[in-house]
Design a protein around this nucleic acid. Structure first.
Lengths: 228, 228
DNA sequence: GGACTAAATTAGGGGTACCTAAAATACCAC
DNA sequence: GTGGTATTTTAGGTACCCCTAATTTAGTCC
């Protein structure tokens, strides 16, 4: 696997993220994710297809090939190990590790990443709850639902939030929510209204979570499942 | 101080290193150091002069301006802190830290560097003995002589070796020379012949150091100075 | 001081990766 | 099936940073 440019690495990562649903990734979505003009994406897509990192159906979208997926997962591993290292070793705030890792992921060697992983005891998840691909390119995607979809009266556990929105992360931290926090949904107002949750901790007050945020916080259901 | 490109950072670092003698840095020397064609250097020199990072006297050479020097020292600080961190925290071999730091120095934020420096207790020297500029751009250049210039019968202390030649570093390590190692010169053959040194340690055998290597190992004299 | 040599610069060109504007294609509604 | 709209692609251009080849300049030797 030849050395890929920084831009190519960014494209592969973005295609992986956008393509997790299984659908082909469209030019426009990719352009927005990478913050370039759609025309620029078209150009890069040709290059990536020539390198056989993606397959491209004109006017439809792109998908990663086997080697493209392997490369993407390697970059994602680098990113998430770096985030975990910064957060753990340097007590780095979880809202800014992403930006730093975004830079370092293109410069850090495989060797450095493995040393960091070792020092951390080969963590499975990064500070935002995202699974860290193994060195051989295996990743376990979790089956999560937005907090907004956890039924009233059910206990949920906050498991994952995107690392990309620093402001959102700061707000989540101010609510004292971290990955692993458990809560019970005690109210959910209709028409995409806010969700009210209650923590187990003694003296915990109910917390009101706006709908948009409740969409961004991905959770597992704990305990009694609702009839389905 | 705006964000500088990777290439610009490499040029500034090289100009600083080559210009330590105080003489203007010539295009050819810079081209060799950076491993590009002299014509490419001419082009970049124009850009750097426009950015007022260097002053350029055509056909004579270049010198760093105040802001150029500040930028160069910042990059060198990043490089040397990174080298020290890798060597100290990950027990990274001293012959390969340079290559890794060369990549990371362009990606690591000021903040990361300062956290590393803190974790290391603000080291003064990197693993090869090179002084680490302070965060405010101060550097203490040492007054050293090559081992080949340490007089016979005098004790010397190995203080500094360039981090650039990995093969040389591996050989030095195999001789069990590290920064701080003391020795006495017991023989130095004429016509740039090899130098023979003797360590203090019990059971230490005399070691023969080829002239070229004895030029690369920079030392201080310890104890009785020779009449001068 | 003129010719020769070594060094530096200019001239012209290529690859990467971006842009805007214009053209092509796909999709949906009727 | 045709028209309109949204999306994608192509066309043409810019900036960065490198290259080789040709030219210019500086310095030296007689």
């Amino acid at each position: 696997m030849a050395d890929l440019s920084r831009s190519i690495e960014d494209y592969l990562k973005a295609i992986y993220e956008l393509g997790r649903s299984g659908l082909p990734v469209q030019t426009g979505a990719l352009a927005e994710e990478i913050a370039v003009a759609p025309a620029s994406v078209s150009g890069m897509v040709r290059r990536l297809a020539e390198l056989e990192l993606i397959s491209h159906t004109p006017y439809r979208g792109v998908e990663l090939t086997g080697s493209g997926r392997r490369a993407a997962l390697q970059i994602i591993r680098r990113h998430r190990i770096l985030e975990t290292y910064l957060a753990t070793v340097f007590a780095w705030d979880w809202d800014t590790v992403h930006a730093e890792a975004e830079q370092l992921e293109h410069a850090a060697s495989e060797r450095l990443i493995e040393r960091m992983a070792e020092a951390l005891g080969h963590p499975q998840f990064d500070p935002h709850g995202a699974p860290i691909p193994s060195a051989d390119g295996h990743i376990e995607e979790q089956d999560l639902v937005p907090m907004a979809a956890v039924p009233i009266g059910t206990e949920g556990e906050f498991r994952l939030v995107s690392d990309e929105d620093a402001e959102l992360l700061r707000y989540v931290a101010s609510l004292e929510f971290t990955v692993g926090t458990r809560f019970e949904v005690i109210e959910a107002l209709p028409f995409n209204g806010p969700v009210t949750v209650q923590r187990r901790a003694q003296g915990a007050q109910p917390q009101v979570i706006g709908f948009e945020l409740a969409q961004a916080l991905l959770c597992t259901r704990v305990g009694q499942a609702v009839a389905s």
